[in-house]
Design a protein around this nucleic acid. Structure first.
Length: 837
RNA sequence: GCCCGGAUGGCGGAAUGGUAGACGCGGGGGCCUCAAAAGCCCCUGUCCUUCGGGGCGUGCGGGUUCGAAUCCCGCUCCGGGCACCA
């Protein structure tokens, strides 16, 4: 019995906004993506880096959450209980700056921004288990942040030490590096910023340097992120050894240096100590004192950042430094060599002193030439080398017992000699420094410490946590934390003796908040500890972590460290030491060649798309635009492409829900074109399933578009009517495959096809028959001398002999051969035959 | 300076040693319509062509291979990271 349907005529075949709101409400009401620890399904943890709430979402968020949501929905359809939480990194400087500008309390400001961001995330159709939401400024989260701090303190992983900071004498406060202008002045007062030592809190991340480095090998992360972390940790192996000091007042003293090139020791023609090095005061002669002091003063007045830059106002690579008047003995050559101070040697790295080998180190070369110091080559440079320092490999010369060796062997020999003589030992140095967590800010998690004149730094007892900053504070543009001026917060009593004491007024770096939120997500209801380790162990590690490349180093390194620290202080027994098994870093979105961001003021809000083409079309665009890892340019053409995505969804709707022409249905035996359609359904399932696993969403979308074209062609050509079950299977498959990408329109189409209450997203991900997915006929190409000459339709399992026979029988090939005998025939059935003359 | 990426039609991109340019955007033509919109159909790298087809073509120059966008060597340009870490 042929069924006949007629098309309704309208701009779009469905009401986008109505459908999107309906399904967003349904997913929330039905708790479709809420997952509990006792869920019988195997679990998967999919997480997008929790955002700083800066207001309504921008396209960077849209892209991020589209990828994440696609994964959540896809894995759910594959039968996993997918943990998909969302939260807000809600402490941070912008809220505090807004408070100074407008007087609004940072909490009010932040919570308004959270509501806006959350609304746009929901409007995008991204689904989360909102019961688990975390906001880092919530006292319930701060409490555990502070407990963890105290446990790290007890374990010796947190400590207090003097550290150089940027200090503005005008504002009487510490500045962040970003607040110091390029010329070394304060952005607010214009005063020259100086370096000053202040007591600050640190986390001992350097204790984990080797582990953080070694375990990178086990991670399924982008290679370049791992490389960046490796460089950041900056492990270098070398040797430390002592030099005898000669000269006034220093007899019997030694100077310890660190080097990775002990093979060059015979070329050490002078030594350099950092300006802050304690030996400077001892060995500087009266004659040299003023020159040395000049260097030290200059260094004290610039930031480390500037000190590292190779050019300060015309003082180019002259290497700012001076002779101290003192000397040391090079133990290898026995010669006396001068000791200099120079700003290119850093007190905090190695021993704060180096042996200088100008012939084999570029910095030493520059310095030696600026100060007229001798150069002795110990590695023979290659023939024709006319540059300065030679840092490559070569045969050792002028090096006594090392002569004739290559540098690797010479290093070994030199270290053995130093150890045998009792002068030095092997050492490893790291570029990585301990993590300075103190921030002189209001809008952050207070460091739970009380300073007692009697008992020193005492932790606030855990039953008194959280320490929450008071609300009755005044935000002034002074640059200092209002907590400093709040006397009832600041003045308290010592938990040990009850005597008068002062609270710490610094807060924690917000990277502390984000270093364990993924663990709290596993058990956000826990009231007696940060989380239940058994539950966390069930979900951890995060199976897929998604975020921007800008967090490649700091956040990801801190989180790796923190996870280990939590395990080692006993708060997280049984959880994996690596928190993020797979990492995906999405590319950024640029507008006019600049990164799209709120601070640059070049955002394109998604709202206008939600209100017109709808969230599905915008999602489809982000998936279709190109490889997820690549940067994307938001261009004048973008809106047209988004329109094209909406057009495609209209077409999907017409193909699955409505008929746009009078249609005759039939059943019974499949015709050839019915079989062909079935085959392309199976090929499509295979293609999209594979593309999903390798994050090739743009080609998934292309395949679905191609299939929709095929489906339309099938309808057009079906003069004898449309085979009902074949067509239904095709339409259902298309909806199932698109379900994770464009969830609203597909869910609605599914319900229209299958009746009220039918749920697309609880269906299983479709499977395919490999036999049907394989093409029935394939195009075999025939080449002569590698040039394409003919195409022949063949069966996929054609034999090599048959393929060659067919190729040689081709008219086009015979023309080309002209009776000549091929010298070689390369056959790769069923893909190609290449005839070589 | 060092270390990673990348370069393909007018544009976004596809092609994991085997038909370069899938899919889409833009453009051109046609159908439908009183007309328009929407929709549908066809064409669209480039040059030559006797309309059968042929030459050229994946940043540049070499190489390996029967065959290279893909692998190797050397450049150019663009993007990113680290930049006096001894």
């Amino acid at each position: 019995m042929p069924a006949i349907r007629r098309i309704p005529v309208m701009a779009r075949p469905f009401d986008v906004q109505e459908i999107e709101q309906k399904w967003q409400r349904l997913w929330a009401d039905e708790g479709s993506y809420e997952v509990d620890a006792d869920d019988p399904r195997p679990s998967q943890y999919v997480l997008c880096m929790y955002p700083y709430p800066s207001g309504p979402a921008h396209q960077g968020h849209v892209r991020n959450y589209t990828f994440g949501d696609l994964l959540v929905r896809h894995r759910t359809m594959q039968g996993f209980a997918v943990l998909s939480p969302f939260g807000f990194d809600s402490f941070g400087l912008p809220a505090e700056n807004a408070a100074i500008r407008t007087g609004t309390h940072p909490r009010t400001f932040t919570e308004e921004r959270i509501a806006e961001l959350k609304a746009s995330v929901v409007a995008l159709g991204a689904v989360y288990d909102w019961r688990r939401q975390i906001r880092s400024h919530d006292p319930s989260y701060m409490r555990w942040n502070q407990v963890i701090f105290l446990r790290l303190l007890q374990a010796g992983l947190a400590y207090r030490a003097m550290a150089p900071v940027n200090w503005c004498p005008g504002c009487q406060t510490v500045l962040a590096n970003e607040q110091v202008l390029a010329d070394g002045t304060c952005e607010r007062s214009g005063d020259v910023v100086i370096q000053r030592d202040l007591e600050q809190w640190f986390f001992r991340i350097t204790s984990y340097a080797d582990e953080l480095l070694a375990d990178l090998e086990t991670l399924d992360w982008p290679e370049r992120v791992k490389t960046m972390q490796r460089n950041w940790v900056g492990r270098s192996e070398g040797v430390e050894f002592d030099l005898q000091v000669v000269g006034h007042g220093a007899e019997g003293g030694t100077l310890r240096v660190f080097t990775t090139r002990p093979d060059t020791s015979f070329g050490m023609t002078y030594a350099v100590v950092a300006p802050e090095h304690p030996l400077v005061d001892v060995i500087t002669t009266d004659a040299q004192r003023s020159a040395v002091d000049e260097v030290r003063t200059a260094v004290a007045h610039i930031t480390e950042h500037e000190r590292m830059s190779s050019d300060i106002e015309g003082q180019t690579l002259a290497k700012r430094g001076a002779f101290t008047g003192g000397c040391v003995v090079n133990p290898f050559s026995g010669e006396q060599i001068p000791v200099y101070v120079a700003d290119y040697v850093l007190m905090r790295y190695g021993t704060g002193a180096i042996m200088a080998v100008p012939a084999e180190d570029e910095r030493d070369w520059d310095f030696a030439h600026a100060h007229g110091l001798p150069v002795v080559r110990t590695t023979r440079p290659p023939e024709g080398f006319d540059g300065g320092a030679w840092t490559g490999d070569g045969v050792k010369e002028n090096s006594g017992f090392l002569d004739g060796l290559d540098i690797t062997a010479a290093k070994e020999r030199a270290i053995e000699w130093l150890e045998a003589e009792g002068l030095g030992r092997r050492t490893v140095n790291y570029r990585l420094r301990d993590w300075l967590v103190s921030r002189q800010r209001f809008w952050g998690c207070p460091i739970p410490i009380i300073y007692c004149p009697e008992h020193g730094a005492v932790g606030v007892p855990e039953d008194q946590l959280p320490v929450v900053a008071p609300d009755d504070v005044e935000f002034l543009p002074t640059g200092e934390s209002p907590l400093l001026r709040h006397s009832t917060f600041r003045h308290t009593t010592c938990p040990v003796c009850g005597g008068p004491a002062e609270r710490e007024t610094d807060t924690m770096d917000t990277f502390v908040d984000s270093s364990w939120y993924f663990l709290r997500f596993c058990d956000p209801w826990s009231e007696d500890r940060p989380f239940d380790p058994a539950i966390a162990a069930q979900f951890m590690p995060v199976d897929q972590y998604i975020g921007g490349i800008e967090h490649a180093i700091l956040h990801l390194l801190y989180a790796r460290f923190y996870t280990r620290a939590l395990i080692d202080v006993g708060l997280a027994p049984g959880i994996p030491r690596e928190p993020f098994r797979r990492l995906f870093t999405q590319g950024m979105i640029r507008l006019d060649h600049k990164k799209m961001s709120k601070s640059k003021g070049n955002l394109v809000a998604p709202t206008k798309y939600f209100n017109t083409v709808g969230a599905d079309a915008l999602r489809l665009f982000h998936l279709f635009a190109g490889p997820p890892a690549d940067d994307m340019d938001w261009s004048a053409q973008t809106d047209e492409i988004i329109q094209g995505c909406a057009r495609f969804l209209d077409r999907v709707w017409r193909l699955t829900v409505e008929t746009d022409a009078e249609v005759t249905w039939r059943e019974g035996e499949q015709t050839d074109s019915d079989v062909a359609l079935t085959r392309s359904v199976h090929r499509l399932i295979a293609k999209v399933s594979d593309d999903m696993e390798r994050w090739s969403f743009n080609t998934s979308v292309a395949a679905c578009m191609e299939f929709a074209n095929d489906l339309q062609g099938y309808r057009r050509e079906a003069s004898a009517g449309i085979h009902r079950s074949t067509y239904d299977a095709a339409a259902d498959a298309l909806l199932l495959l698109l379900a994770p990408m464009t969830p609203h329109v597909t869910a609605e189409a599914w319900e229209r096809r299958h009746g009220p209450g039918a749920r697309l997203h609880t269906q299983s991900w479709p499977t395919y028959d490999p036999g049907l997915a394989r093409a029935e006929r394939v195009t075999m190409i025939v080449q002569v001398n590698g040039k394409l000459k003919d195409r022949i339709e063949v069966v996929p399992d054609i034999s090599e002999a048959d393929a060659i026979a067919l190729a040689l029988a081709s008219e086009r090939v015979m023309e080309e051969l002209q009776g000549k005998v091929p010298s070689r025939i390369v056959a790769r059935p069923p893909r190609l035959v290449n005839i070589v003359l």
